[in-house]
């Protein structure tokens, strides 16, 4: 049998939020179509470092493993991306795994992204329906509008766009591209648009759309290819319009 190929991984570990991070290195047996999830599972099955030290399995967040739930975002070789779609064969070794840096670490690669969901709340990212009882059909929507809304609606709240944004950091409360994109999405919907004003009002609040400084990293890092820069621009346009008209005539 041919000699076994191995994979080298360096992982930034942290036992708890108040503990110091440290690095551990692992050497694992290579398998075809290996992704970062498989690496981490292999470590969990046999948590021994390269030096032979017995350690604990690496904590990480993952669920669907097909890049649609958004859970497994982390920094892989310095870049924010989803672990499930990060194929080992396409990564330079040693593979460096770190938690996202813009969110509080829970443990190891597991971070707390609840801030994003809180911000969705602030932006009123929903279509305010009267109730779930039967009120007939929804509004007619042109196929072209649906084709514009659908890609925006594929956001998986992974947080990669926040991770790569230089404007998102501990000195700023910028909500980030994902959230602003949702404002655009709901302002596009015929019923959602009835409450456009409230949403724009919120997105002009602290940490809102004005905090974007056009570095445009978000659109490059988005695993779903959402036109985030365009979304921010459109929200900007609507916001400024509302601001000026509100000021002049409001």
């Amino acid at each position: 049998m041919a000699e076994k190929k191995t994979v080298l991984v360096r992982i930034k570990r942290q036992l708890a939020p108040d503990q110091k991070p440290y690095w551990e290195e692992f050497e694992l047996t290579w398998r075809p179509f290996m992704n970062v999830i498989i690496l981490l599972r292999d470590i969990a099955e046999r948590p021994v470092t390269r030096e032979g030290k017995v350690t604990t399995p690496v904590a990480f967040d993952a669920n669907c493993l097909e890049e649609v739930c958004g859970a497994c975002a982390m920094r892989i070789n310095g870049k924010a991306r989803q672990a499930c779609s990060a194929l080992v064969d396409q990564l330079e070794q040693p593979i460096r795994l770190e938690p996202l840096t813009k969110f509080p670490v829970v443990r190891d690669l597991f971070v707390d992204r609840s801030r994003m969901f809180e911000n969705l709340k602030r932006m009123k990212a929903w279509v305010p329906i009267d109730g779930t009882y039967h009120l007939g059909e929804g509004p007619r929507i042109a196929p072209e509008v649906q084709q514009r809304a659908y890609p925006l609606s594929r956001c998986i709240t992974c947080g990669n766009c926040l991770e790569v944004c230089p404007q998102v950091n501990e000195r700023s409360d910028f909500v980030g591209a994902a959230i602003i994109n949702q404002v655009r999405l709901f302002n596009l919907h015929p019923t959602g648009a009835m409450h456009k004003r409230e949403r724009l009002d919120a997105v002009m609040g602290p940490g809102g759309v004005h905090d974007c400084a056009n570095a445009q990293n978000c659109v490059k890092a988005c695993p779903k290819g959402i036109p985030l820069v365009e979304s921010i621009s459109e929200v900007n346009r609507d916001a400024i319009r509302q601001a000026i008209f509100g000021w002049l005539f409001g």
Binding site: V127, I129, L135, E137, G138, R140, I141, A142, P143, Q146
Partner: peptide
């Protein structure tokens, strides 16, 4: 059918026919 209508009202971006249905 009413469930679909409800979801539609909630904003699920269902694909559309040229008539907007």
């Amino acid at each position: 059918p009413a469930i679909i209508d409800l979801l539609d009202r909630m904003g699920v971006p269902f694909n559309r026919t040229p008539e907007g249905l």
